[in-house]
Simulated assay, not measured.
Amino acid sequence: METKAALSASIALALEVLATPKSGNVDRFHDFEDLKLHDFVISSICSLPSFLKLARGEIGVGEAIYQAINESVKFHGEKNVHFGAFLLLCPLVSSHGDVKKAVENVKNSDWKQSLYVYKAFKLVNPRVLSSKELDLREDETEKEIVEKKLSLYEWMKKAPEENIVAKELTNGYKLSTECKNRILYWSEKFSLEKAIVLAYHEILSKVPDPLIIAKHGKSLAEKITEEAKLRLKDFKELGNFSIFMEFDEKLIERKINPGSVADIVAAGIYLALMEGVRIA
């Protein structure tokens, strides 16, 4: 079970980036100027040793996040490839896919695990929403974590409501579980890749992506959510995956990147793998 828990996380990261098209994100058809398909594949491979140690109980959640990022940047440079995905996946790997236990592990983490997450953030400096308390971008946050001995759970509770990745860790992985259920549903009708593409757009149609909010504002993020709903409606009527290709090209051209939804989807894929979804 330990090996499956770790391997499934690395495989989930690879399946997420290879699924095409995921509108606005790196996939087999699109690279970004600063992030390429191979950066994500490298990160998914380099994270495996950390996942294995975590699954065996040899390191904590925060330390696993730090080690995974620290090892992967040695190969792809100091780029943010999987910070949000690691934040979601590591608690799940620590619990071997048990969502309730994953949240308990986050609750039981000590301040040292929070500090590892802060240090991981500093390695790659991903774009995040501003926060009134314990903002990842502020140097004072490190001092406050130590002084107040804040667990990862206590820290994530203070994240902005729009931060769907942080909220998953405190509300029981609701979106990730929904994504898993949709992947399992669609995989009975289509290939796993197409199931992932459909689940991705379904999550995008439900929540404004915080990365879009951080870069372009909440109004645009909400418009993208509404447009995703329309694309899904068109797909259900026509059954044509080119609908998502068109949406993808539009978002890529405008540099609109729903990166946090992609993180949720990686967690959903992981949970589906742990439940035995067929890959072939």
Rank of each mutant, 00 (worst) to 15 (best):
V93W: 04
V93M: 02
V93Y: 04
V93S: 02
S94T: 07
S94A: 07
S95E: 05
S95Q: 03
H96N: 09
H96S: 10
H96F: 14
G97K: 05
G97V: 08
D98P: 10
D98I: 08
D98F: 06
D98R: 04
D98L: 05
V99E: 06
V99H: 05
K100I: 14
K100T: 15
K100P: 15
K101G: 09
K101H: 10
A102M: 02
A102W: 04
A102K: 02
A102R: 04
V103C: 00
V103D: 02
V103S: 01
E104T: 05
E104C: 04
N105Q: 05
N105Y: 04
V106L: 00
V106Q: 00
V106F: 00
V106C: 00
V106R: 00
K107H: 01
K107F: 00
K107L: 01
K107Q: 01
N108C: 03
N108W: 01
N108Y: 01
N108I: 01
S109H: 00
S109I: 00
S109G: 00
S109P: 02
S109D: 00
D110S: 02
W111I: 06
W111T: 06
K112C: 09
K112W: 09
Q113T: 04
Q113A: 02
Q113K: 02
S114I: 02
S114A: 06
S114M: 01
L115R: 07
Y116S: 06
V117C: 04
V117D: 03
V117G: 04
Y118P: 12
Y118V: 11
Y118M: 05
Y118Q: 09
K119M: 11
K119Y: 11
K119G: 09
A120N: 07
A120T: 08
F121I: 07
F121E: 04
F121H: 05
K122F: 10
K122M: 11
K122N: 14
L123G: 08
L123W: 10
V124D: 07
V124F: 06
V124M: 03
V124T: 09
N125H: 13
N125P: 13
N125S: 15
P126D: 03
P126R: 00
P126S: 01
P126A: 01
P126E: 03
R127L: 14
R127Q: 13
R127P: 15
R127N: 14
V128C: 03
V128F: 04
L129A: 02
L129S: 02
L129I: 08
L129T: 09
S130G: 15
S130M: 14
S130T: 14
S130R: 15
S131M: 08
K132N: 11
K132I: 10
K132Q: 10
K132F: 11
E133S: 09
E133C: 08
L134R: 06
L134A: 06
L134I: 08
L134G: 07
L134T: 08
L134V: 08
L134P: 11
L134Y: 09
D135M: 06
D135L: 05
D135E: 06
L136D: 12
L136V: 10
R137V: 13
R137S: 10
R137C: 10
E138S: 15
E138P: 15
E138T: 14
D139M: 14
D139H: 13
E140D: 15
E140G: 14
E140C: 12
T141M: 06
T141C: 08
E142T: 14
K143S: 11
K143L: 13
K143H: 10
K143F: 12
K143V: 13
